[in-house]
C-alpha cells in the first residue's frame, strides 16, 4: 500500500509538470492532438499505480515522450499552416447570413440539437439573427450576430471613452505585488503613503486594487473575534 501511495505522489508531481509543459491551452480548449495526449496520459499514469509489478519508468517515459512529441508537433505546426490543418483541422462556416450549411453539418456530424445548443450558449435564440457561425477546431461555435441586431457601442453613439487599463491587484491577503506596482508606475513608497492615509499598513490589507491614474480601493483584513 505504501508503494501505491508513494507512486501516486510521484506521478501526481510528474503529471503536473507534464501538463504545465504542454502549456495553458491544455486547460482551456483542447486541440485534437492534445486531447489524444491527455487521454493517453491519464490512462498510462494509472497503470504503474494500480499494478506495482509494473516499473514506474514504464509510466514516466511514455508520458514525457507524448508530451514532448506534442510540444514538437505544435512547434512545427506553428510554422506551417498546412501541418496545422493536418493536426488540428480547420474552422468551418456552418451558418452564413442566417442559412445553415447542411453539407458542412453532415461532414462535421453536427446534429441540429448540437447546433441550437451551441447557439443558445452564445445567447442566440433565432437562427435568422446569425450573420456567421463558425465551428472552431476545438468543436466550439463562434457566432457573429447580424450587425443590425447587435448592441450599439459607444463609438456608434459618438460617446467619448477613455481606453484605460483595468485596475491591478496590488495587495492580496497582505502580500504586496511589486510587479503589479511597477505595471501601474508606482512604488512601495506610494503604497505606504496611501495605506497610511487609509489608516492601515500593507500587511493588514486583504485586497488592494489600483490603476495607472492613481485610483485605488482598499479592503482591510477582518480581525478575528
Amino acid at each position: 500500500m505504501l508503494i501505491v501511495f508513494l507512486r501516486a505522489v510521484v506521478l501526481y508531481v510528474l503529471i503536473i509538470i507534464a501538463v504545465r509543459l504542454m502549456g495553458k491551452r491544455q486547460i482551456g480548449e483542447l486541440q485534437p492532438s492534445e486531447l489524444v495526449v491527455t487521454i493517453l496520459m491519464s490512462n498510462i499514469a494509472t497503470l504503474p499505480v494500480e499494478d506495482i509489478s509494473i516499473p514506474m519508468i514504464m509510466g514516466i517515459v511514455p508520458i514525457f515522450t507524448f508530451v514532448s512529441l506534442d510540444v514538437f508537433m505544435s512547434q512545427i505546426a506553428m510554422k506551417s499552416r498546412r501541418l496545422r490543418r493536418l493536426f488540428s483541422g480547420e474552422p468551418k462556416v456552418i451558418i452564413r447570413d442566417g442559412k445553415i450549411d447542411q453539407r458542412t453539418m453532415r461532414d462535421l456530424r453536427y446534429t441540429v440539437d448540437d447546433l441550437t445548443e451551441s447557439l443558445r450558449g452564445c445567447s442566440v435564440f433565432e437562427l435568422s439573427d446569425v450573420q456567421l457561425a463558425v465551428v472552431e477546431t476545438t468543436g466550439k461555435i463562434s457566432v457573429m450576430k447580424k450587425q443590425s441586431l447587435d448592441t450599439p457601442t459607444r463609438e456608434d453613439m459618438n460617446i467619448k471613452a477613455e481606453n484605460a487599463d483595468p485596475s491591478v491587484l496590488v495587495i492580496s491577503d497582505g502580500e504586496v505585488s511589486d510587479a503589479a506596482l511597477e505595471s501601474i508606475g508606482r512604488d512601495r513608497a506610494w503604497l505606504g503613503k496611501v495605506t497610511a492615509a487609509a489608516g492601515t499598513v500593507p500587511g493588514e490589507v486583504f485586497i488592494m486594487t489600483a490603476d495607472k491614474s492613481g485610483r485605488y480601493s482598499i479592503v482591510r483584513k477582518e480581525t478575528e473575534k
Binding site: 509543459l21 514525457f64 515522450t65 514532448s68 510540444v71 514538437f72
Partner: peptide, 10 residues
C-alpha cells in the same frame, strides 16, 4: 522554451 525542455527530455 518548452521545445528546448522537451528536446532535453527526449
Amino acid at each position: 522554451s518548452r521545445a528546448g525542455i522537451c528536446g532535453i527530455i527526449v
